[in-house]
Computed example of a mutant assay.
Amino acid sequence: MTPHPFNLPRIGFAAWSGSGKTTLLKAVIPALRARGQRPAVIKHAHHAFDVDTPGKDSYELRHAGADQMLVASCRRYALMVETPETDDGRVPDLDMLCSRLDPERADLILVEGFKQADLPKIEVHRPAVGKPPLYPEIPGVIAVATDAAELDFDGPLLPVNDPDAVARFIIDYCNLNP
């Protein structure tokens, strides 16, 4: 496993756009939780994005010049941090992002995207997307979650439509106590 802040295990999910990374994660997260795990998630966004809505106070204050905007309620909080100094098109530093998570509230970190990052990855591959597998080209693919009948991969093939099997693989790979 790759060393990282807080010694939380990290598993990446990598795939071509439209392959179902988010769909799989949305099903794997409850399967992990059912096994007593507390996953945190970091997702890479390829474009400028906003979680605020124009017209909301937090959006207006951030756009007025607040470099950091934390919105809090009794149920959740969200921190938006402007990073214009790093707006060079490069992928954000994954270790820095992981360090922003609260390690007391997580057992592992699931990372969506960050294909080139140095971490173990599960590739989501669906032949129907019409793209070749990524594992020959990207580092760290330890398993492929797929609906392909067969695949020339020297490692575990996981059924992409069975989130319980993917969750079990993650728990075993990370040596987490179920």
Rank of each mutant, 00 (worst) to 15 (best):
L134M: 14
R62D: 05
R33F: 08
G20I: 10
P92R: 01
P120D: 15
M80Q: 13
I122S: 11
D152M: 00
F13V: 14
P136L: 06
G130V: 01
E85P: 00
G55M: 09
V41I: 07
W16K: 11
A64G: 15
K21M: 10
A106H: 00
A148C: 07
I29R: 11
R90C: 11
G20R: 10
H44C: 05
D93W: 04
A15I: 11
L119C: 13
D93H: 08
A31F: 06
L70Q: 15
P84D: 13
A64I: 03
G65L: 09
A14I: 12
D172N: 05
Q37G: 00
P133S: 07
G18T: 06
K121Q: 08
R75W: 01
V41P: 03
F13M: 15
G130F: 02
D67S: 13
R168H: 04
E150T: 12
L61W: 11
P54N: 13
D52Y: 02
M1L: 10
L108F: 07
V81C: 04
T2A: 12
N161K: 13
P163W: 00
A167D: 01
E123D: 12
I42A: 07
I138S: 13
D118R: 14
Q116M: 05
L158T: 15
E85G: 09
L119V: 14
A27G: 15
H63T: 11
D118F: 12
L94C: 02
R100I: 10
R100C: 09
Q68M: 14
T146N: 12
K26F: 12
D152G: 00
